[in-house]
Amino acid sequence: MTKSTSAPSCSAPLARAGRSVESSAVSPSTRSDAAVALHAKGLVKRYGRVSAVDGMSLRLPKASVLALLGPNGAGKTTTIELCAGFQRPDAGEVRVLGLDPVADGERLRARIGVMPQGGGAYPGVRVGEMLRLIAACSARPLPVGWLLEVLGLTSCARIPYKRLSGGQQQRLALACAVVGRPELAFLDEPTAGMDPQGRRLVWELIGALRRDGVAVLLTTHLMDEAEALADQVVIIDSGRVVAQGSPAALTARSGEQQLCFRAPPGMDLVALAEALPSGYRAEEPMAGNYLVRGQMTPKVLSTVTSWCADQGVLADEVRVARRSLEDVFLDLTGHELRS
């Protein structure tokens, strides 16, 4: 029997048929458009000689979720700060709900919800106090008690912020971002530091925001998060967009399939490639995890398994997969570790 755990590069993306937003639909115009929540064109932000954001264009339709996916230092947070009006771009244009985030900052901030990276609260403030303060800044906030309850914060409502766990701080930050019933929510790494239950809860909440008509711009470096939540994924690196589209479109783009299996490490990849028809590649990305890239046919599958049998080896956990978003991401942004 194969177990349900799979090799990391073989994770199957969720099927997203029927509601993908194609990147080809992006228009370069930043004129205000009733169906668009956010429109950015050619954004540039430099810190000294380093360009944190280097010609970024984004388009976020209303009631949809856009995930900015990128390695650390790719410019995700700076992009959010430019869109929320915390920073002035050195070049380019951005319109959020038809407003200039810097010039119309006060009017805009009354209509958006922001979850800054790492949250933010007075070190000694109690959870309930903080959420009530943020709620007081809105005309018709969600009921504070209900929001604390549903986010699992009731039991720590009287605990000072600095004594909360990372996940509790993140949930409070998320509550602060949505309590004012915003039209658009900016969520900077909303699940960083959360346990699986917390992550699940946040995913649910983001799904509910989208369902109820809120536009969401979130950042993440987690592929599964982008695949599960986003209508559109924008992969950025060094401040530039390197790919964008629905998760399905991004993973299908290469049209390449792959066969994954587990076997004892160190098998002869050259011999395996020779056994296969031309155009197929054999790899061992992690010890004992094998990959055969190329169009999969029953013939190829039987060739691989019988070649393994000839080596006296049982190919375990054999399965055919599309490329995952993680594969796309690593191909585009490189495999070396970022600081």
Binding site: A110, I112, A139, R181, E183, A208, L209
Partner: peptide, 8 residues
Amino acid sequence: FVPDPGRG
């Protein structure tokens, strides 16, 4: 979460 924003 139907949007209904406004300044306090």
